[in-house]
Simulated assay, not measured.
Amino acid sequence: MIFYGKQSIAQSDIDAVVEVLKSDFLTQGPAIEKFEKYVAEYCGVKYAVAVTNATSALHIACLAAGLGKGDVLWTSPITFTASANCGRYCDADVDFVDIDPSTYNMSVDELEKKLQKAAVKPKVVIPVHLAGQSCDMDKIYKLSQEYGFKVIEDASHAIGADYKSAKIGCCKYSDLAVFSFHPVKIVTTGEGGMVLTNDKELHEKVLLYRSHGITRDPKMMTRTADGPWYYQQIELGFNYRMTDMQAALGYSQMQKVDEFVSRRRYLAKRYDELLKNINNIHLPDQNEDTDSSWHLYVVRVDFSKINKTKQQIFAEMKDRGICLNLHYIPVHTQPYYQKQGFKDGDFPNSEKYYEEAFTLPLYYSLTDEQQDYIVKNLVEVLQ
C-alpha cells in the first residue's frame, strides 16, 4: 500500500534515541536544549521552545500573545481544526478569512477587506502555510502593524521552506511561528511541536506556559527563595514538555531536513511534469516569493466534467494500492463551529476547494517507480 505520507527513520535516528535511553535524563534534560538551539539556528530565529505537539504550541503561542476572553482570533478555513481550536482554548472567539483560490492560503485581499469592515478587530491572526508554501507574510505583517494584531504563523507544514530568501520560522514577518513534528510531517519526533520567536518577553511566557506556569527564576518570584528546592507557580500553565527521546530524534532528523525537502521538491516537480497534460486536473500553483517544502501535493478536479464522484476515485485508487487523502475539510463546516454560528456558504472559495481537492502521496522515500504507478492509475481512474 502506498500511503499519502510516511516517516523516514534511519539507523542514526534510532541510535540517537537509544543513547538518550541509556543516559541520565529521559525528560527535561540536555537533548531538549540541543534540539531547540539547532532549529533556532537553522531558521535564523532567536528563540525556540520544544513542546508536545503543534496544537499545544499554538495554544501557548496564543496565550503568550495575550489572547483571552472577549478577544477574536482569525485563521484560514482550510486547515486542521487545531489552528482554530487554539483560540477557543483561550476562551476567545474565532473567525475565518477565505482562501486565495490559487495558492489555497489565506487571501490577503480578503483579510484586508474583512479588517476594514470588522467592528471588532482580531487580537491574533494565524496564517496557515498550507502544504508547505508560505502565505504572503510581508503583506500580512504590514496589515498587522496597521490594525494592531499579533501574527502567529502556523508553519506546521513548512519547516525547510523559504519565503523571500529566508527560512520559514525566522519570524521576520510575525510575532511567533509554530512547527509540527508529527510522523507524516517533513521532520518527526513521533509527536511534537515547537514555538519560535524573536521576542524575549514572548519567549519567557511560552516557557512558563509550557511547564505549569512554574518558575525558579528569582527575578520572576514574588519573594526570596526559601532554598534550592524552591519554585513558584505564577501563571496557570500546562504540562506541554517534550521528552528527551523525542528531542534526540528531532535533532537527528534535522540533520537531514534539507535532504528531505530537496527530495520532496524533486517529486513535486515530477508530478507537475507527469500530470501537466492530463485533462480536468488542476495542479498546485506557487507564489514567486516562496519555495515550498512540499509537505503535501494537492490537486483539484472539476467533478462536473467526469462521471465519477470523489468517493469513487478514493475507493478505486485504494483498490489499486494507493491511499489518497484530503487536506482539509473547511473548519467552519464542522458541527462544533456551526454551533458557534457559522454556516455553509460563508467562505465559498474554501468550500469549492473542498469539493475539488485531494492529496496525492508524497514523502521522502517515495520512489520514481511508485510515483509513475500513482499517476498511471490516477489517469485511468479519472477516465
Rank of each mutant, 00 (worst) to 15 (best):
180 S>V: 05
142 K>G: 03
190 G>M: 02
71 D>W: 02
44 G>F: 09
84 A>W: 05
316 E>K: 15
360 L>H: 03
127 P>D: 04
142 K>T: 06
27 T>L: 11
107 S>R: 01
327 H>Q: 06
114 K>T: 00
12 S>C: 11
145 Q>V: 05
84 A>G: 02
28 Q>K: 14
325 N>H: 12
306 I>P: 03
297 Y>C: 06
309 T>S: 15
87 G>L: 03
330 P>L: 07
357 A>D: 13
120 V>N: 11
253 Q>Y: 12
324 L>E: 02
152 I>F: 04
229 W>G: 15
343 K>D: 09
306 I>S: 02
287 N>P: 04
134 S>P: 05
215 T>E: 08
259 E>I: 13
362 L>E: 04
223 R>I: 14
22 K>S: 14
50 A>K: 04
205 K>S: 05
95 D>K: 11
114 K>C: 00
225 A>W: 06
195 V>P: 01
372 D>N: 13
213 G>Y: 01
138 D>P: 03
82 A>V: 02
328 Y>S: 06
137 M>Y: 06
40 A>L: 01
191 E>A: 11
218 P>H: 14
262 S>W: 09
336 Y>H: 12
54 A>G: 04
279 N>V: 14
170 C>M: 05
129 H>T: 09
268 A>T: 03
29 G>T: 12
269 K>H: 08
19 E>C: 10
174 S>C: 01
18 V>W: 12
311 Q>T: 10
348 P>V: 04
116 Q>H: 03
247 A>H: 04
283 L>T: 02
307 N>H: 13
56 S>V: 07
37 K>I: 10
38 Y>A: 15
341 G>R: 07
324 L>A: 06
301 V>P: 03
97 V>P: 00
294 W>Y: 10
378 L>E: 03
358 F>T: 08
86 C>M: 13
122 P>K: 07
371 Q>G: 05
288 E>H: 13
108 V>T: 00
190 G>N: 04
25 F>V: 13
23 S>A: 13
300 R>K: 11
332 H>C: 10
15 D>E: 14
297 Y>H: 07
80 F>M: 06
200 K>L: 14
68 G>H: 10
288 E>P: 15
141 Y>H: 15
301 V>R: 04
352 K>F: 03
335 P>V: 12
264 R>T: 00
325 N>Y: 11
48 A>D: 04
177 A>W: 02
303 F>Q: 11
290 T>E: 05
112 E>K: 00
270 R>F: 10
285 D>V: 12
187 V>P: 00
115 L>W: 05
285 D>W: 10
246 Q>H: 09
265 R>M: 07
313 I>N: 04
180 S>C: 12
80 F>S: 07
118 A>H: 09
330 P>V: 05
55 T>Q: 12
